[in-house]
Design a protein around this nucleic acid. Structure first.
Lengths: 258, 258
DNA sequence: CCTTGTTTTTCCGTAATACGGAACGAATTT
DNA sequence: AAATTCGTTCCGTATTACGGAAAAACAAGG
């Protein structure tokens, strides 16, 4: 799996990814320090990326920023992905019904990333952005997605969690044991909850989306302030579950509830 | 310039860029045919890109699509770029004033690409999307951006145009000679016009944005249907020019009009 | 203005690595 | 079952990317 690949490309991508984080501007030196690679190598790779305008160099300050080419590619992501196109109308319907923020997300390494989002006028909280990431253990989408992963994956996930999991609020679950219990419950319910674990006062409910092979590939969630969400909890969960089932069916999955 | 770069990275980027066009799904074979490269090489590169989730492979159909990693990077582009952040409020102000579609764009190779866009409720036409591209010769933004390029650039541009320029409507200018005249006029006026050259019935006016070094780095445009635009032409052009001047000033440019 | 220190860029010999032809597998068609 | 097509693995070779070193470019201080 790790064979038959081009290492210099991997390194170039690694450089690109530096720009995905909060840091938007990198000097050559900074990249070298950050990546622990020889200056010449980084220089050559960055030059290559700049040549094709994936990065652009400020000619006076010599620092690099993300370039236009990525914008172009990114817009291709938007129109693409069957999932997103198919899910969108259902998400909007759900949004209209519950009048809270709706998110569509999937798993990437140890995080979830937001594939799409529908906001309502009255939604105040929620600062998620399409394309950004959040730790899986602290989100309802993350939990429901983890709940349907293989045991092998979960084992490595829990190992990672031991080292890396940090509390984001006073309620964040950082203990693999406790998370595992919640995953079990989520699998039973077909629905996961996040009760102020990523942001105080924010409650989310999430349900799994199945593809044609009956694999869980994404999750829908409803997010809102606790005073509104707690009141309508059962209404919310059934609505989000139904939306997830609809999307699954549109993706070709026959029966989601066993 | 072409030296001190990594060819395998360039090739990988070339592959990525295939996915930026209208074609969203590529099979290995299709890429090989398109790029005229040995199968093994393309396979290795695509595998590498897939490994890092820049592409994802449909396990049954074996075809590749753009992956989540690009979404992540793309969202970094959005928040970034001083230009976009600084220009945005001015674009919205212009939009409110003229009640037509506003675009912000820059030059990339032979095309312009859309950096940002403000729509109005009544705008019907205009199917541009942020991140997408359009031929420079057929757009007002393209003309105004070309108008301020160096002679050397223009020479190579006209050469390219001889070969590649295609009419998009009956009014599209594909003759370098005629375009050159328009560029001259655009430079005099500080404003370029597109009269149904990219889409029948669509008229656009565009003005140049200068950076602190007095270089033209981007353009603003107003686009709308001819019956509305022709009526208010002078009002539109002066509004778009003023917006461009404001943005230029915010970017640190002292005096735009000589 | 010259010295000293930093950071970026070029040079170049070497070794690793990406290349690509060929052969193998998998899957689909006739 | 044979043939065809497309995807993947193998492997020897030569290209290519690497990285140390040194040179520019730039900045700061004496």
């Amino acid at each position: 799996m790790a064979k038959e690949q081009v290492s210099s490309i991997l390194r170039a991508l690694q450089i690109l990814e530096c720009f995905a984080d909060d840091r938007t501007e990198w000097t050559l030196k900074a990249l070298v320090n950050h990546l622990n690679l020889p200056t010449t190598t980084v220089f050559r790779q960055v030059s290559t990326l700049a040549e094709r305008q994936y990065l652009v160099q400020d000619p006076i300050r010599k620092s690099y920023q993300i370039g236009p080419r990525l914008l172009q590619l990114s817009s291709a992501v938007v129109g693409q992905s069957n999932l997103r196109r198919i899910a969108r109308p259902e998400l909007e319907r759900l949004s209209a019904a519950v009048r809270e923020t709706i998110n569509l997300s999937a798993l990437l390494e140890h995080d979830i990333y937001y594939l799409d989002k529908v906001e309502t006028h009255r939604s105040i909280v929620c600062n998620t952005q399409v394309g950004t990431r959040a730790p899986a253990y602290a989100t309802s989408c993350g939990k429901i997605l983890l709940a349907y992963q293989t045991d092998a994956y979960l084992e490595s996930y829990f190992q990672w969690m031991e080292k890396e999991a940090r509390p984001l609020t006073s309620r964040t679950i950082t203990d693999p044991q406790r998370l595992q219990e919640q995953l079990k419950k989520a699998r039973q319910d077909g629905c996961a909850v996040d009760d102020g674990e990523i942001e105080a006062g924010l409650i989310c409910f999430s349900a799994p989306i199945y593809n044609v092979d009956r694999q869980v590939i994404a999750a829908v969630s409803v997010s809102g302030p606790d005073y509104r969400m707690k009141e309508d909890a059962s209404l919310m969960t059934s609505a989000v579950r139904r939306t997830a089932e609809n999307i699954s069916r549109l993706l070709g999955c026959r029966e989601t509830v066993s």
